[in-house]
Amino acid sequence: MRLIAVNIDGVLLNDSFGPVIRRLVESRGGVYGPELEQALLSQSQMVAARAAAEVLGGSAEALLAAYFEERERYVAEHPVRVLPGARELLERLRGLGASTVCYGGLERKHFDRYLGDLELAGLFDEPGYVCTNDFRPGIREITEDVFGLRLDQVMFIDDVARVAEAARDLGVAFIGHPSDYESGFQRPLMERAGARHVVRSLGEIDEELLLRVDAEAAAGRSWPGRGV
């Protein structure tokens, strides 16, 4: 394993997206379910806004603006925070000898604000953070374009089933850490996608699990039905 890529929101930071999306949908009379959640998470901002507009009406631009306004209100009530075990996880990843990078859909200032000030940024390799808004979910781009590696040399840790599906289709090693948001659907969607490893806490991503995932990747068995 040469690279471990870790999603920022929902893995290292608490989920401040799923609850906001649900609020926005239901405040406009929409019905929030797994299909809609799947259509909106880990998409570029405008793609997600257009998908929401098809359900809720109005323009994608207006919905995107409303979303960020709603998110500002939400984080005022539920501040963004580093999840328990994040530092320990990053230190374990560093101990494996692979490069480590963080990624997510917001601009780098989001990473700098919540991880840089806590000196967690030093636990990542250059460039430290990759904004994937222009190429969601970003597995191939981070692997090949940013780090110049093969897809069988990387592992992704993410909270969204769409990323699990992309990892499956590419044969990339994956560990799921679905948000603990009680009304979310990502855990069953990950399981439906066939993810072998879906955890409930960052502490579960211990050295034993990481070495197992590494061995599965080396054997081409990161996903059921692949390899020997």
Rank of each mutant, 00 (worst) to 15 (best):
M155A: 13
L93S: 00
V213W: 04
R87Q: 12
G105R: 08
G58T: 06
L36W: 04
S16C: 14
V163G: 04
L123F: 05
A48K: 03
L40E: 00
E216V: 07
W223E: 03
G85S: 04
D112A: 14
P178V: 08
D9H: 15
N7T: 14
N14S: 08
R212K: 15
L210A: 00
D180N: 13
M1C: 09
V75E: 11
N7W: 10
G225E: 06
E88Y: 04
L3Y: 07
E182A: 15
I142G: 03
I8F: 13
V146D: 01
V213S: 00
M155S: 10
E70P: 03
R162Q: 07
Y67Q: 02
G176D: 04
G194E: 09
E88M: 06
R162A: 06
A217T: 12
F174N: 02
R73N: 15
Y74F: 15
F135T: 07
E61H: 12
K109Y: 12
A76R: 15
P34W: 00
R113M: 13
A39W: 00
G148D: 07
P178C: 05
G176F: 01
A49Q: 07
D159W: 01
A215F: 14
T143L: 14
A5L: 09
E144P: 09
V82D: 07
L13S: 04
D214A: 15
G116H: 11
R87V: 03
V160C: 14
R71Y: 13
A53I: 08
A86Y: 00
Q186A: 02
P178M: 09
D159H: 00
H110D: 11
H197F: 14
E182Y: 15
A76I: 08
V172W: 01
A62C: 10
L36Q: 02
F124Y: 03
D9L: 12
L64N: 11
R140W: 14
P34Y: 00
D112T: 13
R200P: 07
V146C: 11
E208W: 15
R73D: 11
A76M: 14
A62H: 10
L151E: 00
I175D: 02
H110Q: 11
R200W: 08
Q153Y: 03
L24F: 02
R73S: 14
V31Q: 08
R108K: 08
V146H: 09
F147V: 03
F135M: 10
V6Q: 09
L13Y: 12
E69T: 14
L13F: 08
V25G: 06
R71V: 11
R23I: 10
Q153P: 01
E26Q: 12
A215Y: 07
L151F: 01
E54N: 14
Y74Q: 04
S42V: 12
Q45A: 15
A98E: 12
E70N: 05
G138R: 01
M46E: 08
G95P: 04
V228D: 15
L12W: 05
A193N: 01
P79S: 10
P188L: 05
H78P: 06
G29L: 02
L56W: 11
V82K: 10
L115C: 06
V6M: 02
A52P: 00
G184T: 02
L56A: 08
G104T: 09
E77G: 10
L36P: 00
S99F: 09
I175H: 05
G194L: 13
D134I: 07
I4M: 10
E35I: 03
P84M: 03
R28L: 10
G148E: 05
V75C: 03
R108I: 05
E165V: 13
L211N: 12
L41W: 06
V75T: 12
G105F: 05
